[in-house]
Design a protein around this nucleic acid. Sequence first.
DNA 1: CATTTAATTGAGATTTAGTCTCAGTTTAAA
DNA 2: TTTAAACTGAGACTAAATCTCAATTAAATG
Lengths: 139, 139
Amino acid sequence: MPNKRFKKFLSVKGFKFTKEREEIFSEIMLIEGHFDPDELFITMKTKGSKVSRASIYRTIPLLVDGGLIEKVEMTDRHAHYEKKPGKRHHDHMICSICGKVIEFYSPELEKLQESICRKEKFKALRHSLEIMGRCGDCG
Amino acid sequence: MPNKRFKKFLSVKGFKFTKEREEIFSEIMLIEGHFDPDELFITMKTKGSKVSRASIYRTIPLLVDGGLIEKVEMTDRHAHYEKKPGKRHHDHMICSICGKVIEFYSPELEKLQESICRKEKFKALRHSLEIMGRCGDCG
DNA sequence: CATTTAATTGAGATTTAGTCTCAGTTTAAA
DNA sequence: TTTAAACTGAGACTAAATCTCAATTAAATG
Protein backbone atom coordinates (compact mmCIF):
# COMPACT_ATOMS: atom_id res chain seq x y z
CA MET A 1 0.00 0.00 0.00
CA PRO A 2 1.87 3.02 -1.27
CA ASN A 3 -0.41 5.15 0.88
CA LYS A 4 1.62 4.01 3.84
CA ARG A 5 4.86 4.95 2.15
CA PHE A 6 3.52 8.44 1.55
CA LYS A 7 2.43 8.78 5.15
CA LYS A 8 5.81 7.60 6.36
CA PHE A 9 7.64 9.97 4.04
CA LEU A 10 5.61 12.89 5.30
CA SER A 11 6.18 12.12 8.96
CA VAL A 12 9.91 11.60 8.44
CA LYS A 13 10.11 14.99 6.79
CA GLY A 14 7.99 16.57 9.49
CA PHE A 15 5.12 17.28 7.12
CA LYS A 16 1.51 16.66 7.96
CA PHE A 17 -0.76 13.99 6.56
CA THR A 18 -3.85 15.93 5.55
CA LYS A 19 -7.12 14.89 3.90
CA GLU A 20 -6.19 17.00 0.90
CA ARG A 21 -2.85 15.30 0.40
CA GLU A 22 -4.40 11.90 0.82
CA GLU A 23 -7.11 12.74 -1.67
CA ILE A 24 -4.62 14.02 -4.24
CA PHE A 25 -2.37 11.06 -3.74
CA SER A 26 -5.03 8.42 -4.09
CA GLU A 27 -6.48 10.14 -7.12
CA ILE A 28 -3.05 9.99 -8.77
CA MET A 29 -2.78 6.31 -7.92
CA LEU A 30 -5.94 5.74 -9.95
CA ILE A 31 -4.44 7.28 -13.07
CA GLU A 32 -3.01 4.96 -15.68
CA GLY A 33 -0.26 6.65 -17.65
CA HIS A 34 0.83 10.20 -17.17
CA PHE A 35 -1.02 13.30 -16.16
CA ASP A 36 -0.45 16.98 -15.72
CA PRO A 37 -1.37 18.92 -12.60
CA ASP A 38 -4.10 21.03 -14.14
CA GLU A 39 -5.76 18.04 -15.74
CA LEU A 40 -5.73 16.37 -12.34
CA PHE A 41 -7.32 19.43 -10.80
CA ILE A 42 -10.15 19.39 -13.35
CA THR A 43 -10.71 15.68 -12.88
CA MET A 44 -10.93 16.01 -9.13
CA LYS A 45 -13.15 19.04 -9.32
CA THR A 46 -15.49 17.17 -11.67
CA LYS A 47 -15.69 14.37 -9.15
CA GLY A 48 -16.79 16.90 -6.57
CA SER A 49 -13.51 17.38 -4.74
CA LYS A 50 -12.98 20.66 -2.92
CA VAL A 51 -9.19 20.47 -3.12
CA SER A 52 -7.62 23.61 -4.54
CA ARG A 53 -5.28 23.93 -7.47
CA ALA A 54 -2.66 25.35 -5.10
CA SER A 55 -2.73 22.22 -2.97
CA ILE A 56 -2.26 20.05 -6.02
CA TYR A 57 0.70 22.09 -7.16
CA ARG A 58 2.09 21.96 -3.64
CA THR A 59 1.60 18.22 -3.20
CA ILE A 60 3.14 17.07 -6.47
CA PRO A 61 6.71 18.08 -5.56
CA LEU A 62 6.28 16.22 -2.28
CA LEU A 63 5.33 13.06 -4.13
CA VAL A 64 8.29 13.48 -6.45
CA ASP A 65 10.57 14.00 -3.45
CA GLY A 66 9.13 10.96 -1.78
CA GLY A 67 9.83 8.85 -4.85
CA LEU A 68 6.18 8.04 -5.43
CA ILE A 69 5.84 9.74 -8.79
CA GLU A 70 8.25 11.01 -11.41
CA LYS A 71 8.35 13.91 -13.78
CA VAL A 72 8.37 12.24 -17.17
CA GLU A 73 8.10 14.99 -19.72
CA MET A 74 8.50 18.71 -20.13
CA THR A 75 6.81 20.09 -23.21
CA ASP A 76 6.78 23.78 -24.02
CA ARG A 77 3.72 24.27 -21.89
CA HIS A 78 3.26 21.44 -19.45
CA ALA A 79 5.01 19.26 -17.01
CA HIS A 80 3.83 15.63 -17.00
CA TYR A 81 4.11 13.11 -14.22
CA GLU A 82 3.42 9.45 -13.69
CA LYS A 83 3.41 6.84 -10.95
CA LYS A 84 6.75 5.20 -10.37
CA PRO A 85 7.00 1.85 -12.08
CA GLY A 86 8.15 -1.36 -10.52
CA LYS A 87 11.26 -3.03 -11.95
CA ARG A 88 11.79 -2.60 -15.64
CA HIS A 89 14.37 -1.65 -18.21
CA HIS A 90 17.30 0.34 -16.94
CA ASP A 91 20.58 1.76 -18.17
CA HIS A 92 24.06 1.67 -16.69
CA MET A 93 26.79 3.88 -15.40
CA ILE A 94 30.07 2.04 -15.14
CA CYS A 95 32.95 3.26 -13.02
CA SER A 96 36.20 2.65 -14.85
CA ILE A 97 38.19 2.78 -11.61
CA CYS A 98 36.38 0.39 -9.27
CA GLY A 99 34.10 -1.27 -11.79
CA LYS A 100 30.93 -0.47 -9.90
CA VAL A 101 27.78 -0.57 -11.98
CA ILE A 102 25.05 1.89 -11.17
CA GLU A 103 21.67 0.99 -12.60
CA PHE A 104 19.46 3.90 -13.40
CA TYR A 105 16.18 4.51 -15.08
CA SER A 106 15.01 7.86 -16.35
CA PRO A 107 11.56 8.06 -17.90
CA GLU A 108 12.56 11.46 -19.19
CA LEU A 109 15.45 9.88 -21.07
CA GLU A 110 13.16 7.19 -22.45
CA LYS A 111 10.68 9.78 -23.65
CA LEU A 112 13.40 11.83 -25.24
CA GLN A 113 14.75 8.80 -27.08
CA GLU A 114 11.27 8.02 -28.30
CA SER A 115 10.88 11.51 -29.66
CA ILE A 116 14.30 11.41 -31.34
CA CYS A 117 13.37 8.11 -32.99
CA ARG A 118 10.06 9.51 -34.13
CA LYS A 119 11.93 12.32 -35.82
CA GLU A 120 14.05 9.77 -37.72
CA LYS A 121 11.03 7.57 -38.47
CA PHE A 122 12.79 4.82 -36.56
CA LYS A 123 10.83 2.21 -34.63
CA ALA A 124 12.85 1.48 -31.51
CA LEU A 125 12.55 -1.99 -30.03
CA ARG A 126 15.24 -1.83 -27.39
CA HIS A 127 18.35 0.10 -26.58
CA SER A 128 21.41 0.07 -24.44
CA LEU A 129 23.05 3.05 -22.88
CA GLU A 130 26.31 2.76 -21.02
CA ILE A 131 27.92 5.77 -19.46
CA MET A 132 31.56 5.31 -18.59
CA GLY A 133 33.29 7.47 -16.01
CA ARG A 134 34.13 7.70 -12.33
CA CYS A 135 31.69 7.03 -9.55
CA GLY A 136 31.27 9.23 -6.49
CA ASP A 137 33.63 7.13 -4.36
CA CYS A 138 36.41 7.16 -6.91
CA GLY A 139 35.95 10.90 -7.38
CA MET B 1 28.72 31.84 -44.31
CA PRO B 2 25.64 30.56 -42.49
CA ASN B 3 23.95 33.87 -43.33
CA LYS B 4 23.57 32.58 -46.86
CA ARG B 5 22.00 29.35 -45.63
CA PHE B 6 19.45 31.32 -43.66
CA LYS B 7 18.63 33.50 -46.66
CA LYS B 8 18.24 30.45 -48.84
CA PHE B 9 16.05 28.70 -46.31
CA LEU B 10 13.78 31.71 -46.09
CA SER B 11 13.38 32.07 -49.84
CA VAL B 12 12.72 28.37 -50.31
CA LYS B 13 9.99 28.57 -47.72
CA GLY B 14 8.57 31.76 -49.25
CA PHE B 15 9.52 33.85 -46.23
CA LYS B 16 11.11 37.24 -46.46
CA PHE B 17 14.64 38.20 -45.57
CA THR B 18 14.16 41.26 -43.36
CA LYS B 19 16.64 43.47 -41.52
CA GLU B 20 15.16 42.28 -38.26
CA ARG B 21 15.67 38.61 -39.06
CA GLU B 22 19.18 39.28 -40.24
CA GLU B 23 19.95 41.23 -37.10
CA ILE B 24 18.58 38.52 -34.82
CA PHE B 25 20.38 35.82 -36.72
CA SER B 26 23.78 37.49 -36.71
CA GLU B 27 23.44 38.35 -33.05
CA ILE B 28 22.83 34.67 -32.30
CA MET B 29 25.87 33.72 -34.34
CA LEU B 30 27.97 35.87 -32.01
CA ILE B 31 26.83 33.97 -28.93
CA GLU B 32 29.09 31.27 -27.56
CA GLY B 33 27.11 28.62 -25.74
CA HIS B 34 23.40 28.69 -25.26
CA PHE B 35 20.94 31.49 -24.81
CA ASP B 36 17.31 32.05 -24.14
CA PRO B 37 15.07 34.33 -26.18
CA ASP B 38 14.48 36.93 -23.52
CA GLU B 39 18.14 37.18 -22.67
CA LEU B 40 18.80 37.72 -26.37
CA PHE B 41 16.19 40.44 -26.45
CA ILE B 42 17.80 42.27 -23.54
CA THR B 43 21.27 41.96 -25.07
CA MET B 44 20.11 43.35 -28.37
CA LYS B 45 18.16 46.14 -26.76
CA THR B 46 21.21 47.10 -24.70
CA LYS B 47 23.22 47.32 -27.90
CA GLY B 48 20.65 49.75 -29.24
CA SER B 49 18.66 47.40 -31.44
CA LYS B 50 15.06 48.32 -32.16
CA VAL B 51 13.99 44.71 -32.80
CA SER B 52 10.96 43.67 -30.78
CA ARG B 53 10.62 40.73 -28.46
CA ALA B 54 7.84 39.42 -30.70
CA SER B 55 10.17 39.28 -33.69
CA ILE B 56 12.74 37.38 -31.70
CA TYR B 57 10.17 34.85 -30.56
CA ARG B 58 8.96 34.59 -34.15
CA THR B 59 12.40 34.21 -35.67
CA ILE B 60 13.74 31.52 -33.37
CA PRO B 61 11.40 28.77 -34.61
CA LEU B 62 12.41 29.66 -38.15
CA LEU B 63 16.07 29.16 -37.30
CA VAL B 64 15.25 25.85 -35.64
CA ASP B 65 13.26 24.80 -38.70
CA GLY B 66 16.11 25.82 -40.95
CA GLY B 67 18.53 23.72 -38.94
CA LEU B 68 20.65 26.68 -37.90
CA ILE B 69 20.06 26.43 -34.18
CA GLU B 70 18.75 23.76 -31.84
CA LYS B 71 16.68 23.73 -28.73
CA VAL B 72 19.04 22.28 -26.15
CA GLU B 73 17.24 22.48 -22.86
CA MET B 74 13.82 22.92 -21.36
CA THR B 75 13.89 23.95 -17.74
CA ASP B 76 10.72 24.60 -15.81
CA ARG B 77 10.67 28.18 -16.96
CA HIS B 78 12.83 28.67 -20.04
CA ALA B 79 13.68 27.24 -23.37
CA HIS B 80 17.37 27.39 -24.28
CA TYR B 81 18.91 27.30 -27.71
CA GLU B 82 22.34 27.14 -29.25
CA LYS B 83 24.05 27.26 -32.63
CA LYS B 84 24.28 23.93 -34.36
CA PRO B 85 27.65 22.31 -33.81
CA GLY B 86 29.90 20.91 -36.47
CA LYS B 87 30.81 17.21 -36.31
CA ARG B 88 31.21 15.77 -32.85
CA HIS B 89 30.08 12.87 -30.72
CA HIS B 90 26.99 11.08 -31.91
CA ASP B 91 24.88 8.06 -31.04
CA HIS B 92 23.42 5.32 -33.22
CA MET B 93 20.16 3.83 -34.32
CA ILE B 94 20.66 0.43 -35.88
CA CYS B 95 18.08 -1.20 -38.10
CA SER B 96 17.92 -4.89 -37.33
CA ILE B 97 16.38 -5.65 -40.72
CA CYS B 98 18.65 -3.91 -43.22
CA GLY B 99 21.52 -3.06 -40.91
CA LYS B 100 21.44 0.63 -41.70
CA VAL B 101 23.09 2.83 -39.09
CA ILE B 102 21.61 6.23 -38.45
CA GLU B 103 23.92 8.63 -36.67
CA PHE B 104 22.21 11.16 -34.52
CA TYR B 105 23.15 13.80 -32.02
CA SER B 106 20.81 15.33 -29.52
CA PRO B 107 22.14 18.07 -27.27
CA GLU B 108 19.01 17.63 -25.21
CA LEU B 109 19.89 13.99 -24.65
CA GLU B 110 23.44 14.93 -23.70
CA LYS B 111 22.20 17.50 -21.20
CA LEU B 112 19.78 15.04 -19.73
CA GLN B 113 22.51 12.44 -19.29
CA GLU B 114 24.69 15.03 -17.61
CA SER B 115 21.95 15.85 -15.16
CA ILE B 116 21.24 12.19 -14.43
CA CYS B 117 24.93 11.64 -13.73
CA ARG B 118 25.06 14.66 -11.49
CA LYS B 119 22.25 13.17 -9.46
CA GLU B 120 24.26 9.95 -8.99
CA LYS B 121 27.48 11.88 -8.31
CA PHE B 122 28.94 10.14 -11.34
CA LYS B 123 31.56 11.85 -13.49
CA ALA B 124 30.81 10.82 -17.06
CA LEU B 125 33.74 10.63 -19.45
CA ARG B 126 32.09 9.06 -22.46
CA HIS B 127 29.07 7.00 -23.30
CA SER B 128 27.57 4.88 -25.98
CA LEU B 129 23.93 4.67 -26.83
CA GLU B 130 22.65 2.21 -29.38
CA ILE B 131 19.00 2.03 -30.23
CA MET B 132 17.95 -1.14 -32.00
CA GLY B 133 14.81 -1.32 -34.08
CA ARG B 134 13.46 -0.86 -37.59
CA CYS B 135 14.27 2.07 -39.84
CA GLY B 136 11.71 4.00 -41.84
CA ASP B 137 12.32 1.96 -45.02
CA CYS B 138 11.92 -1.38 -43.29
CA GLY B 139 8.75 -0.10 -41.57
C1' DC C 1 10.50 52.62 -61.69
C1' DA C 2 5.72 52.11 -59.93
C1' DT C 3 2.34 48.99 -58.37
C1' DT C 4 0.66 45.41 -55.79
C1' DT C 5 0.07 42.03 -52.31
C1' DA C 6 1.25 39.08 -48.98
C1' DA C 7 4.47 38.74 -45.30
C1' DT C 8 6.28 41.16 -41.45
C1' DT C 9 6.71 44.38 -37.83
C1' DG C 10 6.20 46.69 -33.06
C1' DA C 11 3.59 47.78 -29.05
C1' DG C 12 1.24 46.12 -25.90
C1' DA C 13 -2.67 43.12 -24.62
C1' DT C 14 -3.44 38.36 -23.67
C1' DT C 15 -2.74 33.66 -22.27
C1' DT C 16 -1.42 30.26 -19.20
C1' DA C 17 1.32 27.17 -16.23
C1' DG C 18 2.80 27.73 -12.09
C1' DT C 19 3.73 30.40 -7.62
C1' DC C 20 2.73 33.31 -3.85
C1' DT C 21 0.07 35.68 -0.10
C1' DC C 22 -2.37 35.65 3.92
C1' DA C 23 -6.12 35.02 7.05
C1' DG C 24 -8.38 31.23 8.78
C1' DT C 25 -8.06 26.07 9.68
C1' DT C 26 -6.10 21.70 10.94
C1' DT C 27 -2.70 18.40 12.45
C1' DA C 28 -0.20 16.19 15.90
C1' DA C 29 2.75 16.43 19.72
C1' DA C 30 2.85 17.57 24.47
C1' DT D 1 -6.97 20.34 25.92
C1' DT D 2 -3.58 23.46 24.46
C1' DT D 3 -0.49 25.14 21.32
C1' DA D 4 2.71 25.95 17.63
C1' DA D 5 3.76 25.05 13.32
C1' DA D 6 2.07 23.33 9.05
C1' DC D 7 -1.55 23.60 5.83
C1' DT D 8 -5.45 25.29 3.13
C1' DG D 9 -8.30 27.95 -0.36
C1' DA D 10 -9.23 31.95 -3.07
C1' DG D 11 -7.54 34.66 -5.91
C1' DA D 12 -3.75 37.93 -6.90
C1' DC D 13 0.52 37.64 -9.09
C1' DT D 14 4.56 36.30 -12.22
C1' DA D 15 6.75 35.51 -16.32
C1' DA D 16 7.52 33.08 -20.68
C1' DA D 17 5.47 32.88 -24.74
C1' DT D 18 1.75 34.07 -28.05
C1' DC D 19 -1.54 36.88 -30.26
C1' DT D 20 -3.75 41.19 -32.30
C1' DC D 21 -3.94 44.65 -35.56
C1' DA D 22 -2.78 48.76 -37.88
C1' DA D 23 1.21 50.32 -40.21
C1' DT D 24 5.27 48.97 -42.83
C1' DT D 25 8.15 46.53 -46.05
C1' DA D 26 10.06 42.94 -49.18
C1' DA D 27 9.97 41.42 -53.52
C1' DA D 28 7.38 39.81 -57.50
C1' DT D 29 5.11 41.82 -61.40
C1' DG D 30 3.84 45.11 -64.90
